[in-house]
Design a protein around this nucleic acid. Sequence first.
DNA 1: AATTTATGTCAGCCATATTGACATAAATTT
DNA 2: AAATTTATGTCAATATGGCTGACATAAATT
Lengths: 180, 180
Amino acid sequence: MNQTTMGKPVKEALTNDDGVDFALIELFFFAYRDFTSDPDAILTEYGFGRAHHRVLHFVNRRPGLTVAELLDVLRITKQSLARVLKQLIDTGHVIQVQGPRDRRQRELYPTNKGRALAMALAVPQSRRIRAALREAQPADRAMIERFLKAMVNPELRTQVDKLPSRAEAPAGEGKENDRG
Amino acid sequence: MNQTTMGKPVKEALTNDDGVDFALIELFFFAYRDFTSDPDAILTEYGFGRAHHRVLHFVNRRPGLTVAELLDVLRITKQSLARVLKQLIDTGHVIQVQGPRDRRQRELYPTNKGRALAMALAVPQSRRIRAALREAQPADRAMIERFLKAMVNPELRTQVDKLPSRAEAPAGEGKENDRG
DNA sequence: AATTTATGTCAGCCATATTGACATAAATTT
DNA sequence: AAATTTATGTCAATATGGCTGACATAAATT
């Protein structure tokens, strides 16, 4: 383990010539970092973090999802979720409703307050995307969507598809909401 | 704060119709999550985390950068960097060299071992990108690059540009390794 | 000689995640 | 009806990766 045998400094930089697409790797890193910076700033004012953002987001995108479903989407443990969810409930952003079919389940819904915050967090992100598309090439939004989707693990793409794209004909009281 | 006045559950899902590009927001989230999953798995074997990855990555991309420069790129505090950097040094992935001009500075270089690990971490990410480009539309790689760059805060785009894309004509002692 | 700069280190704090164990209520199976 | 499984909640301990503040050292600059 001495400097002579193996600890010699490598002075040449890794570049795209090394068969690896470092340009896109780094752009993805920087892009995501700044993508999350706008909501982060807002969340700080509320004493919330990214964990709260994710919960609030999916509760707003799929109102009525159960705790188990939320855990599945977020891929965290229930103990991790507990604290964050409790805070969102205590602050009146999310409420729990006892499941109608199965009374053990807790359906999670945003309140108006929670809906407002979710929108406030999403707007700057959407604006950033819109601006980037304009700067890049407005026509090919679909292409970027395909690219990003292809970056997702095939097994997990179902998750993406489960989220509503367009407002559905409201299902009314009787019928179920069939997103499946 | 009672259920009657403000705590009523909002039952309608937020959709793309609400003027916000939820589709791309979520795709970006899922794409980044899976993008980091491959290296995460490798890092775990070494007892390292994402923090180590980032340090190792930039030390390999800009060998010889100083501690201050690294802190600037990563945007963390020196106390945060300290533990991670120490581990990378102790395990022989990175070595410090006293700055030639300014002997207070510590230039950071990867060792061969550190170079190898950096490559091992980058390869699956690059492969994922390549596959996604193939699935999307191979021609328009440049477009996606423009899009991602436009997602980065303008002030910070200089950071992106500071990284080497192609191997440069080596400046130093005798002949360097030119893979070009 | 005094000050500033680059780095390191100590100590403590916070947020977010983890695992394991156990509790409760409701649904399901036997 | 009793036993089991399921959905959720909670307690405790632990790890990681950030943070701030304070202080130390050596080297460069003024």
